[in-house]
Design a binder for these strands. Sequence first.
DNA 1: CAGTGAGCGAGCTTCCGCTTGACTT
Length: 671
Amino acid sequence: MKTLVIVESPAKGKKIQDYLGEGYKVKASFGHIRDLPAKKEEVPAKYAAEPWARLGIDVQNGFQPLYVVPADKKKNVAELRSLAQEADRVLLATDGDREGEAIAWHLVKALGLKDNFERMVFHEITREAIQKAVTNTRPLDYALVGAQESRRILDRLCGYGVSPALWQSIGPSLSAGRVQSAALASLARRELARMNHVPADYWRITAQISPNEGCEPFNAVVVSIKGQALVGPKDYGSDGQLKADTTSLMLTQEQAKQIVDFIKGRGVTVSGVETAPFSTKPPAPFTTSTLQQAASKALKMGPKKTMDVAQKLYEGGKITYMRTDSPALSDEATQAARAVAAALFGPASVPASPRQFKAKGNAQEAHEAIRPAGKNFVAPDQTGLVEDELALYELIYRRTVASQMIDLQGNKTVLHLKSGAVGLQSSGRVITELGFTRLYADDSDKKDEQPLPNVSEGAALAAPDAKAELRKTPAPGRFTEATLIKALESAGVGRPATYANIIEVLKNRGYTALVEGKMYVTWLGLLVAAYLAEQFPSLVDLAFTVKMEEDLDRIAAGQMKREEYLTAFWTEGLEQTIAGAKHEAPAVALSQFGVVVTARHEQVVMLKDGKSVPLNLDIVPDSLTAEKVEQIMSGRPVSRASSPKSKGGKKPKAKGRKKPPTTLELPEGGV
DNA sequence: CAGTGAGCGAGCTTCCGCTTGACTT
């Protein structure tokens, strides 16, 4: 054996072995092989007494990290080491991103490589790409490794630095971190906005309009009276009061009824017609984040389940790698997608030149999009897959092929109507070309689909029916697991390998849970978020990661020193904030009920007039009513309201956690 | 004198990101 090639994923290794053939041995690292010690028992005895042993970073001494090989990686590392000793040279073919560069460097250290190693990078797994990569190796990029180490150290300092403040202020085993705390804060802001939301009324008046010549009737909405707009949701603040600067008209019930009768009696005339062609491009091929969103919507599959199923498809050679932030297709995939579309819907269903998709933001693009594997896509019914795997494969297949199809096209029409001083409007559209929606469509492609008749200005139309509904302004909607991931991704927080995991952490800590498929924040989550927002405002700021990424880019470009950056962040910043943080429980005041929710003796409690009662975390915060508060304060059990089918038997328990904290009532506490 | 129980103190919890199986719910 001459050359040892080390990749991150064993499934990837197998294919590359095929392409490289004899003379090469391809093995997998299985991700990272060394890390900071997770707990004290991982710290080697000679360092155990050091003051920095708990952090695993000698902050006084240039932020020197202590790396160990975790127990479950030892066997693999030993095997790689002996293979490396027999090899003439070692190609470090880990992923072409910051983490991959760091894994390569850790391999150099852990395997004791001297100077017989080179870095090999590729972005797609085809025979050509691999053979080219083997002959175009480069040296290790130590500045990029330094950026990754900075990221790792910063995350450790945030997480292990701030979490103890939560133990001292609220309860044991709680956690904080750059990613999870930003996510929790986003959820908590939304939850509080819902709790503080005061619904306000507005009238929505609609009319059914009947065109003269035997056409289908269509719907129109009243938008103005004597040119003055009607009050709608936009005119109210979150306090339920009309905004001071609104010029809109609020109707009384009497007036609304009069308008209904007026329209019915009088009919409408067409006062304007606007018609314009529209076209909608197909969505880009899947990244991890968009796959999770689509699977959630179309298949009702949560992010974790989606990733488990995708992993199976990947290992079975059905799809490309499922942890990616790039929507780009390789040339072979682009051709395959076009060929499928042309075969299914004819050559006119694909545009003359292939579509290209590029990632935006801080994507690292080490892989291509998630798509059917190979240079010829296997049709879903030919895969032999069943159930979840089939459903997810088909979703990926359709989305990939659709991305290379022509636009959805049609004409959008807005009719302006008048009934005396009452102004109405109706919009609709006519599809002239289904385009990619023949293969892949979601609800957003189906808006305003009513066809409108071909009428011209001045035409008089009957209004056989009209009605007025009193509506209430809706509270801001909750996040689903998938929409939270979308929000995090667009803020640059988290990575494809961690999106699903972020959600699991929030659930396992008891910070969030699901009601009717939506994420809500528990009382515990609200307290943690409140404490962090007060004592560690930068940690709950979504923009923090963006700033960090900019600094890491500077370190990777050699424009900033690692130690300088970490000194500014820790020694001159967070370390002092931690030292100055108050160790007292935060409080969420519910002034409308005259109670306060806080923590006492490591329990979440509700306080009223000096009396404190433990609070069950199953009670959804925004489901509280005065009666419920009464019931809680009198010590009677309260069931959680808005979920009719609460699953009593299911216990989402932390994986690595031996025993959940018993002093805090976590959601699984039941009873 | 032996068994019990209150009280006290020590030790532990925790991060993000990269990968799969090994688990015990």
